[in-house]
Amino acid sequence: MALQKTLSLLLLSLLTLLGLGLVQPSYGQATNKKFKWQHVDSTETGGNNFYCDTMMQSRGMTRPTCKQLNTFIHENIETINNICNAPNIRCKNGRMNCHVGEVRVTGCKDTGSSPPPKCSYQATAGKKNVTIACDGNPLLPVHFDGYILP
């Protein structure tokens, strides 16, 4: 009986801390890891179709189907994380946790000319203003929301 009371108090305390925002669930960290896997390549400058074909396949975005669009950011992770410090703007899904920053990118678009897993991509490279959703404490990038068009 005493053990059940202790466990109940611990659970209540944890829920209280979560409610106050003092303990963050691992959602932000897990989605940040996925974001980095899908969108960050700080060691390359990208820019051509071969780069897109190779990266999309090596990062598992050509199975079971060819991912239609993906963007790789060619900056160090600190630069990308700092985008989360920019003022909040509305994301495409309506949430107010997006931020804008200028980074070097390679956009990869499926040409539809090759079946998975040997998908064929067309690359577009350059410096772009991008929108990134951030979550967690500290704020970390969790979703690439798109480009800011001029």
Rank of each mutant, 00 (worst) to 15 (best):
C84V: 08
N32P: 07
Y147H: 05
I89W: 01
V130Q: 01
L12T: 02
C91A: 08
Y121R: 10
M55N: 10
C98I: 05
L14E: 04
G46S: 12
G112T: 05
E44T: 14
I148N: 00
T111Y: 03
S13R: 06
A123V: 09
T106F: 01
M61C: 04
K34T: 12
L20I: 12
D53M: 09
S113H: 02
L17V: 10
K36W: 14
G126Q: 00
R104V: 11
A133R: 03
L12F: 04
G28T: 02
C134E: 02
P138D: 02
P64R: 00
K5N: 09
V23N: 01
D145K: 00
L149K: 05
L11C: 14
D41E: 02
I80G: 03
G107R: 15
N93A: 05
N137M: 13
G21C: 03
R104M: 11
Q29S: 15
R104T: 14
S26E: 11
T65K: 11
E78R: 14
R104I: 08
K128S: 10
R90W: 07
K127D: 08
H99Y: 02
Q24H: 09
M56T: 10
C134P: 09
M55S: 12
T31M: 09
P150C: 04
A133L: 08
G126E: 02
K118T: 15
